[in-house]
């Protein structure tokens, strides 16, 4: 009996090592290159190992600005999605009204619409309202695919809370807004964290809208990296920037790790 389980454990850890190698290899390569000077600089010769690439990021105002641009629109997007998604998710979960399921399906349709197909009209529309070249425009347009995700995840979590929870609160004299703020949101914290996580990653990594909506200014980190490519690309700098772009995402994973591993109910 112990023998079988021992070999099983060995096999399992072997598989996990393979998986870890598969997932970590590209990342290791990136981090490795980010410490190598791949282009001649006054401070470092080609091939030397050091922090020269990281120092160069902070010498370039465009790159520093792109960090804050990205953070601005991602945070704006997550806040908007949660603010708009929470009441909608509550409504879908608790009330029945004509066409409710159709609206939910319609919302999900927008998540599955390829962004390229909407890029042109969105550009024209946003140009009218002067939202091109600003992080606000990107934060807004990312709601297109993130609000459905937020509603869908939050709805699953709210449906897990028994209806009596609401009813008791209303009998106790809570108004709807006060119930939301003081009771529902704390009870829903894991759901909000998971929803925020998914909104964050989908917004952080998105490139199609981020590209078309930033023509001359307000470039996010992804587009700033694209702009670094030229005839003689400084790969080391590109990689250092990529490593930087990973930090907020990794922080996000770390923050929600327990909520995700606890598992959540998913329904469509």
């Amino acid at each position: 009996m112990t023998r079988i389980s021992l070999s099983k454990i060995l096999m399992r850890s072997g598989l996990l090592c393979l998986l870890a190698a598969f997932i970590l290899l590209p990342l290791v390569q990136t981090i490795f290159l980010s410490f190598i000077a791949t282009k001649a600089h006054p401070e470092a010769t080609v091939g030397s190992i050091g922090l020269v690439n990281y120092l160069n990021i902070f010498k370039s105002p465009v790159l520093v600005a792109s960090l804050s641009n990205s953070l601005t629109y991602v945070i704006l997007n997550v806040v908007l999605c949660l603010l708009a998604g929470l009441p909608a998710a509550y409504a879908f979960s608790r009330y029945r009204f004509i066409g409710d399921r159709h609206i939910l399906l319609l919302l999900l349709t927008f998540r599955v619409t390829p962004p390229v197909s909407l890029s042109l009209p969105i550009f024209l529309l946003f140009a009218e309202f002067d939202l091109v070249n600003s992080p606000i425009g990107i934060g807004l347009v990312h709601c297109l695919f993130n609000i459905p995700i937020a509603i869908w995840i939050l709805e699953s979590f709210i449906s897990e809370i028994p209806r009596e929870f609401d009813e008791t609160a209303f009998i106790d004299g809570y108004s709807l807004p006060r119930f939301f703020l003081t009771l529902l949101i704390p009870a829903l914290a894991p759901g909000i964290a998971v929803a925020a996580f998914f909104c964050f990653i989908f917004s952080w990594v998105e490139v199609v809208f981020a590209r078309i909506l930033t023509v001359t200014a307000g470039k996010p980190i992804t587009m700033a990296i694209n702009a670094l490519f030229s005839f003689q690309t400084d790969i080391g700098l590109v990689m250092a920037m990529t490593v930087f772009s990973l930090i907020p995402g990794i922080a996000m994973i770390y923050l929600v790790r327990n909520y995700i591993s606890k598992g959540f109910v998913v329904r469509l």
Binding site: L16, L19, A20, I23, L24, L25, P26, L27, Q29, T30, L33, I201, W204, V205, E206, V207, I221, T222, I225, N226, I235, V238, M239, T242, S245, L246, P248, G249, I250, M252, I253, Y254, R257, N258, I260, S261
Partner: peptide, 27 residues
């Protein structure tokens, strides 16, 4: 240990899309 495995597989999700091809090309 499940937490670590889940964190591990979630890592590639936070890589910006236009960087992925480049990372693999250099790999």
């Amino acid at each position: 240990a499940r937490i670590f495995v889940l964190m591990l597989v979630a890592l590639p999700l936070v890589v910006p899309w236009n960087m992925i091809a480049m990372m693999w090309q250099s790999l």
